[in-house]
Amino acid sequence: MERLKEKAYELRRDIIEEIYHSKAGHVGGDLSVIDILTVLYYQVMNINPENIKDENRDRFLLSKGHCVDALYMVLGDKGFFDKQEAIDTFCAFGSPYIGHPNTDVPGIEINSGSLGHGLSLGVGMALAAKMDEKTYRTYVVLGDGEMAEGSNYEAMMSAAHYKLDNLCATIDLNGLQISGPTKDVMCTSDLGAKFRAFGWNVIDVEDGNDCVELLSAYKQAALVKGQPTAVIAHTVKGKGVSFMENQKGWHHGVLKEEQYQMAMKELKEVLQ
């Protein structure tokens, strides 16, 4: 389990490199969601470069697509493509590594990034698995700000209606969005109560940046029958870099050199 945490912090350093180099991206959300991505990609899902065309692979959708910077680092680290190339060319002219997930990048399941689409796409993928009696699971990661999109509630309704126990949504609940605290911009809480009211199984993860808690939640979710599961992961925006944590300004902030050095030093200290 320590290895998972280490991996998440190694990936945080990659993310900082990528953001610093490109002067683009959404670093705050990247750092809040990276533990979720690490647990899913390194422990939970059966997705790797060898099985990417396999009909039985699990499906992953990053509905909060603006945090693709983090996903690129995970996919690159897993060998879907050259991670350094993604760091060097993120958001550069002509690069496939653009600011939202697109299928020109190996490992990206479907284009996303316009908020409020991923859960519905996931419902379609989970329905297809049921129709074909396949055992793969579909994982969708959304943001808490994104939960203001009404289409999510259409998706929630249909997932419960069709008893999609092969669908698992994770809310990266970091409590901040571009304009400020989610509770002030448009209060989306109580998300657990909302999912329950729509007929979902809900698992609250108190520390959504803790790989142990997250892994336990996904193991529980896989055992649930007749209901989709929502993992409500209470995360910290900017987690791991002290001056970024819980600061709305780091939603898509760009690092100066001193900040870059400080962030890399802090993250290295955790690894040591």
């Binding site: 499906r59 796409l121 419902v123 297809a128 698995a129 074909d132």
Partner: peptide, 15 residues
């Protein structure tokens, strides 16, 4: 909205 995205999800799995 859900109709269209769910349809796309189904299609991405070979339907």
């Amino acid at each position: 909205q859900n109709l269209v995205s769910v349809s796309a999800g189904l299609a991405s799995c070979g339907k």
